[in-house]
């Protein structure tokens, strides 16, 4: 079965989608990513979709699910590199990708991911202080 590779880099997981997505492939990615977050105790997930020319409602929903599932497991996620035509099409289709953080490119995505992780760790520290 075809799968999209997931790279581990320190606390992060990196995914670059280089092929056209179809339903089964997107579903496999969702499962593999959530399992990888658990396996590697990852704090952040970065998904590069700059080579993806088509995202329809199903694949969009999977991307949204990945964001929500990662967060439930305590990891932050950012999607980077969406092509302008894909973004315009998604909005017209009615899919707003609520709950998914996005950035223009990989560099900005990594920045955002780091700041989100700092923020979430800071918040949990504050929480600990409050309860003491």
């Amino acid at each position: 079965m075809e799968r999209i590779p997931i790279l581990k880099m320190g606390d992060f997981l990196l995914v670059t989608i280089q092929v056209d997505l179809y339903d089964q492939l997107a579903e496999n990615l969702e499962t593999d990513l959530v399992n990888s977050v658990k396996k590697h105790n990852s704090k952040g997930v970065l998904i590069d979709i700059s080579s993806v020319s088509i995202i329809d409602s199903f694949m969009g929903r999977i991307l949204g699910n990945i964001g929500i599932m990662s967060r439930i497991m305590g990891a932050q996620s950012v999607i980077v590199g969406m092509q302008p035509a894909v973004a315009m099409t998604l909005v017209e289709l009615g899919l707003t990708l609520t709950g998914v953080s996005t950035a223009l490119n990989v560099e900005k995505g990594m920045e955002l991911l780091r700041s989100k992780i700092l923020l979430s760790e800071g918040q949990s520290d504050d929480y600990d202080n409050d309860t003491e």
């Binding site: 339903d23 020319s53 088509i54 995202i55 329809d56 409602s57 199903f58 092509q83 302008p84 035509a85 894909v86 315009m88 099409t89 017209e92 289709l93």
Partner: peptide, 17 residues
């Protein structure tokens, strides 16, 4: 153009599903 292509192919993708 690329935008109309993307819209058409996305629509096709929905309908073929």
């Amino acid at each position: 153009g690329i935008l109309n292509q993307t819209k058409l192919i996305t629509a096709a993708s929905e309908l073929v599903r």
